[in-house]
Every structure is written in structure tokens, then in C-alpha cells.
């Protein structure tokens, strides 16, 4: 009798834990909405306004959203350009000893704190870009490079896993038909690993867009952001606007509400990207 009660209590306790874990998300959404709705209610001028100038009561985030995507997509292209070939190499060609060195290094790269990467960018990358390419140094390009370093390990690891997941028989069949190794990779392995690779890229982009400190330190943050026309121009991204603004916004003002609304927009973008990833993976599995 007593034993049954204990079991019952424990089960309920575990249930409460699980429920409260999920309630945190619920709370986050409610509080973010509560703080952000006054700004979201501005509507068109908030989402499509061209000027972000809190002191003039202008809260247009369109150029910031565009810049965020420019920075996110660009860094991803760099990461894909390096990461996918690296994943192919690691999965198909690398000798065991190379793999045993490269793989842990790539995983360690995930963990270099973003603040350290940002500091590295500030001290090395920005003077380098300023002296060799002109401009202020703090620009989209610097953001691309720093974010590419951050997303690279995700792209490599997940792509490698999905290349390895392609059944060996496919490869053997292709080679038996007289295709060279490279032809096999291009025509058989990569198309079959496509969904995994795509998922890694979308996920990488979600991470890049949500990244805060490293980007903040290298992208320049103009006073009133505009839609960039060159990779040497400074930009603001959603996360950097929040961090810069939050300490100085008068609490309860539209400025503060707008910063929380930016948080909601950021959350929505990343949630959509994650949903796409999940769909892509599911499609890949069912195929």
C-alpha cells in the first residue's frame, strides 16, 4: 500500500517536472508577447518601416531584418563551401588517423565561446579588412567570417553523418558499374545525403541568426540601419539592436516594447527555420 503511494507520488513528481519544463516556453512566449505587443501593434511601420530611430519614435525594422538574413545566408554559404567538401572528405576519403585528429578539432570549434571569437574578430579581422579592403573594417564581411567559423562545425558534423548514412550498397553498385569514386560521390552519395546536408545548413542559419555577441562586436551597428549594398558596409542585426538598446531604453517606453518585439521576430524566424529543418529531415527519412 505504502509502496504504491510512493510510486504514485514519484510518477506525479516526474510529471510535474516535465510539465514545468514545457511551461518555461509558455512563459517565455507570454512574457515576450506581453512586452512586445505594443510595438507589434504598430504593424506596417514596424515590420516594413525603413528607419530605426528610437529617439524620433521611428521603429522600422525592415533593414535590420534584411541585414540579418544577408549576414546569416552569407556566412552559411562560406560554411557550406568549406564544410560540405570537408564532410565528404571525412566520410569518404580520410584515413583513420586523419579522422581521429580532425573530428575532435571540429567538435572543439563548436565550443570556442562566441565572445572569444568576437574578440578575435575585433583584434585581427577588423584591422585586416580595414587596411586591405578599405571601409571601416566593421562590416558584413567580418560578420560572415566570424559566423562561418561558428557554423562550420555544425555543417561538417551533420553533413558527415548524413553522408555516412547513405547505404554502402549504393556506392558499391555505382563503382561496380564503372563510375569513378568522384562520379559516385557526385551522382550517388551527395543526392542521397541531400536532405541531411540541407538540414545542417538551415540549422546552421538558425544558429547564425540567433548569435549575439560575436556578431555585435564586428558588424559596425550604424546609427540608423539601411539595406546594405556592399559587403564592406556596416549593418545592424536583430540581436545586436537588442543588446545595444536594452540597457538604455526607458523602461515602459515604446523603445523597450520595440526591443522585445524584435525578440519575438527573431524567435519567429528561428522557429520557422527549425520547422523547415524538421520537415526536411522527415522528408529525407520517409523517402
Amino acid at each position: 500500500m505504502n509502496k504504491v503511494n510512493v510510486e504514485w507520488v514519484i510518477e506525479k513528481l516526474l510529471f510535474i517536472s516535465a510539465i514545468s519544463s514545457s511551461f518555461i516556453v509558455f512563459f517565455i512566449i507570454i512574457f515576450m508577447l506581453h512586452e512586445g505587443i505594443p510595438a507589434l501593434a504598430i504593424g506596417w511601420d514596424f515590420f516594413f518601416g525603413m528607419d530605426w530611430s528610437p529617439s524620433n519614435n521611428q521603429f522600422g525594422i525592415f533593414p535590420i531584418v534584411v541585414s540579418t538574413f544577408v549576414v546569416g545566408i552569407g556566412s552559411l554559404l562560406i560554411a557550406a563551401f568549406i564544410g560540405i567538401p570537408a564532410a565528404v572528405y571525412l566520410a569518404e576519403f580520410s584515413p583513420r588517423w586523419v579522422h581521429s585528429i580532425v573530428k575532435p578539432c571540429v567538435e572543439m570549434l563548436v565550443g570556442i565561446p562566441s565572445i572569444v571569437l568576437g574578440f578575435f574578430g575585433l583584434m585581427v579581422l577588423i584591422p585586416l579588412i580595414r587596411d586591405s579592403l578599405g571601409g571601416w573594417g566593421e562590416c558584413i564581411l567580418a560578420g560572415w567570417i566570424i559566423l562561418a567559423i561558428m557554423t562550420l562545425p555544425h555543417v561538417i558534423s551533420i553533413s558527415e553523418d548524413s553522408i555516412r548514412a547513405v547505404p554502402k550498397g549504393f556506392k558499391e553498385a555505382s563503382v561496380a558499374l564503372g563510375a569513378t569514386e568522384l562520379q559516385t560521390i557526385r551522382k550517388v552519395i551527395l543526392p542521397n545525403a541531400r536532405s541531411g546536408i540541407l538540414a545542417s545548413l538551415i540549422l546552421g542559419m538558425g544558429n547564425a541568426i540567433g548569435e549575439t555577441m560575436a556578431v555585435l562586436m564586428v558588424i559596425g551597428n550604424p546609427n540608423i540601419p539601411w539595406i546594405p549594398s556592399s559587403i564592406l558596409e556596416p549593418v545592424s542585426v536583430l540581436t545586436s539592436v537588442i543588446v545595444i538598446g536594452i540597457n538604455y531604453a526607458v523602461w515602459g517606453s515604446m523603445h523597450q516594447h520595440a526591443l522585445f518585439a524584435i525578440g519575438i521576430v527573431l524567435f519567429a524566424i528561428v522557429a520557422i527555420l527549425n520547422a523547415i529543418t524538421t520537415t526536411v529531415i522527415r522528408k529525407g527519412v520517409s523517402r
Binding site: 530611430s53 550604424p222 546609427n223 538604455y248
Partner: peptide, 11 residues
């Protein structure tokens, strides 16, 4: 006048 929109913000 207003501060130029191209000015870099330093927090």
C-alpha cells in the same frame, strides 16, 4: 540637425 544615419553606434 540629427546624427548621421551612417554613424557607427558604440554602446
Amino acid at each position: 540637425r540629427d546624427i548621421s544615419k551612417e554613424a557607427s553606434v558604440k554602446p
